[in-house]
């Protein structure tokens, strides 16, 4: 099929898609870049002027910026740890033969289909609310003071909410990986005198490592841009306690009407995300080669 003719026909056929994607990506990207070098405030329309790197200096020296980076890292890291540890444990559990396995497996994936805004609202109002929430009810039932999650542990609460949404994804990928493990390997290890824990650490975990890297990569890409859960629950607060980079960009451009600084923040976020992506790609490349 790879004749000169079919190649050029193929190029011609995919060109609309390529052009669309290019426009889709390039136009917003160049506009963002352009705005980031402007003094551009929505409260003073028509006064846009060239600002050089002023927006970047402003954004990068803002104490909120360092908080946001730190919060982003905590959020991504926390969710990854919870989903991978929890996902491996759940996958081990679901891999056991038990009655109703099929239905339970479908139920486990359910949280993944709940919209982030909805799940955050449910968590906020039905579980974590210090007056009406289920957790408050349980605490009162055993005679404890209800804990106001979103006020006293806001970032941890958001990590919990986001992790809940991503746990099924990790579980599902890890479960399929676990099922592809040759049972003779486990039996061989058993005959070699390996206890269950040794089998887990020497056989199952190495077998899962590839799936785990895939989960880390995919989740990181999405977790860097967590937004809805923050907007719905804490609005980035108290103070900057739950402001991640995405939310900071939003706050700059739309709460403080400073599109220039917001765009500069966006560009910084893109650069940071790419640095993370390069690291991840290297890690995955190593893991996928083996």
């Amino acid at each position: 099929m790879a004749t000169q003719h079919s190649k050029s026909a193929a190029r011609f056929m995919i060109s609309p898609a390529v052009l669309l994607l290019l426009g889709w990506m390039l136009i917003p990207l160049s506009l963002t870049l352009y705005f980031s070098f402007l003094r551009y405030n929505l409260l003073m329309p028509g006064t846009e002027e060239w600002a050089g790197f002023l927006n970047y200096r402003f954004f990068l020296t803002d104490p909120a910026f360092f908080d946001a980076i730190w919060n982003t890292l905590l959020l991504v890291g926390g969710v990854l740890v919870i989903t991978i540890v929890g996902g491996v444990l759940l996958a081990l559990l679901l891999d056991q033969p038990f009655w109703g396995q099929g239905i339970v497996r479908i139920l486990v994936i359910a949280p993944f289909f709940v919209m982030p805004t909805v799940s955050a609202l449910v968590w906020k109002n039905m579980f974590m609310n210090p007056v009406n929430g289920l957790f408050a009810f349980l605490a009162k039932a055993v005679g404890l003071e209800p804990f106001d999650f979103l006020a006293h542990a806001p970032l941890s609460s958001i990590i919990l909410i986001v992790a809940w949404g991503w746990l099924p994804f990790a579980t599902l990928i890890l479960l399929t990986a676990l099922q592809s493990l040759d049972s003779e390997q486990l039996e061989a290890a058993e005959m070699d005198g390996a206890s269950w824990l040794s089998r887990f650490f020497y056989i199952m975990l190495p077998h899962l490592s590839r799936a785990i890297t895939v989960v880390i990569l995919i989740q990181t890409i999405f977790l860097l841009s967590v937004f809805a859960e923050i907007l719905v629950t804490t609005n980035g607060g108290p103070g900057t306690a739950t402001t991640n980079l995405t939310f900071l960009v939003y706050a700059q451009s739309l709460l403080q009407f400073d599109v220039g600084a917001g765009s500069a923040g966006g560009v910084v976020a893109i650069i940071l995300a790419n640095i993370v992506a390069i690291f991840l790609m290297r890690m995955i490349g190593k893991n996928l080669d083996a």
Binding site: D182, E184, Q185, E187, A188, M191, D192, Y202, P206, H207
Partner: peptide, 28 residues
């Protein structure tokens, strides 16, 4: 199985793919 003092060679060999030959042999 481990306490019976028997060793088994499986049809699929059941080698541990992520370990070197040395680690495979020394695993027991």
């Amino acid at each position: 199985p481990a306490k019976r003092g028997l060793a088994m060679v499986f049809q699929s060999y059941a080698l541990y793919p992520h370990m070197s030959v040395r680690k495979n042999i020394s695993f027991p």
